[in-house]
Design a protein around this nucleic acid. Structure first.
Lengths: 137, 137
DNA sequence: AACTTTTTGCAAATGATTTGCATTTATAGA
DNA sequence: TCTATAAATGCAAATCATTTGCAAAAAGTT
């Protein structure tokens, strides 16, 4: 259940890389590359946007970061693996993390039916949050 | 369970629109805008790529088409709603549609826990298909 | 057929993401 | 601690999917 976040030895632990991971750790929800970039800038860093992209790319390929797209959006969001399942309110945009991923229970079933060896998944659920249900009813 | 694919009356049923929907119906898996465009071209249509995009956009907003992104890809794929849940083989890229969406069983649970009114979802599962399991074992 | 509104085609613009290259930096070894 | 060297960074320019403006064409009416 715990994630280690160990960067493979063939990569170097640069301060930029560390800083990007820290931003991701502090964020409750998946965020855009540019958002990471801007938070770093605001934090006094003099980092470049392409450095952010290059690192996110490498981290994604290594499985240390999850890249996803939200409905209606055209740019990627990035998050640490434990934050990838979430509910999105279509009205206000609020995001709620799904902690106990319901999918795990289905892995076995899916495995049997399709004979696939499951290695990962991504679930995105849309709906209307309690507050908006009141507001718009 | 059945999808109607009725275009709301405020939109016109142009031949381009019909042709795009036909391509989507014929495809087993979610495909790129450009792929749709090229299949139409090959079929003798003299359609424009922006027309494809504009229609996919409208169809997506009306809920007649599902837009999604596959892991590792940076461009959107489009599919009819009954084709949105699928398994992807990480080795060979093969795609298998999940017919009986396992998620439906969880809607209620999620609804209770988070008080969200669920309106939609998207599931993408990665793994290794039976053939590749043999090939790479 | 004429009218009104939606769509289309085309070309140009946009915006996220990527890339080339010279310079800097992290890390291993002397 | 100093050096060598491969990996990373910054910057500017390039890419490529997607969007948009606008005049011409097509749909659905009357």
């Amino acid at each position: 259940m715990e994630q280690k976040l160990e960067i493979p030895k063939k990569y170097r632990l640069t301060k930029q890389r560390k800083a990007i991971l820290e931003i991701l750790e502090k964020s409750d929800i998946p965020i855009h590359a540019k958002e990471i970039f801007e938070r770093l800038k605001k934090g006094g860093w003099n980092i470049n946007l392409s450095t952010v992209y290059r690192n996110l790319d490498m981290l994604t390929k290594e499985g240390l970061v999850i890249k996803s797209y939200m409905k209606g959006e055209d740019k990627a969001r990035y998050a640490l693996p434990d934050k990838k399942n979430y509910l999105v309110c279509e009205k206000c945009g609020k995001i709620v993390i799904i902690d106990n991923c319901p999918f795990d229970k289905f892995k076995e079933e899916l495995k049997e039916v399709h004979q696939f060896e499951i290695t990962g998944h991504c679930i995105e659920v849309y709906g209307i949050c309690p507050e908006c249900q009141e507001k718009f009813s």
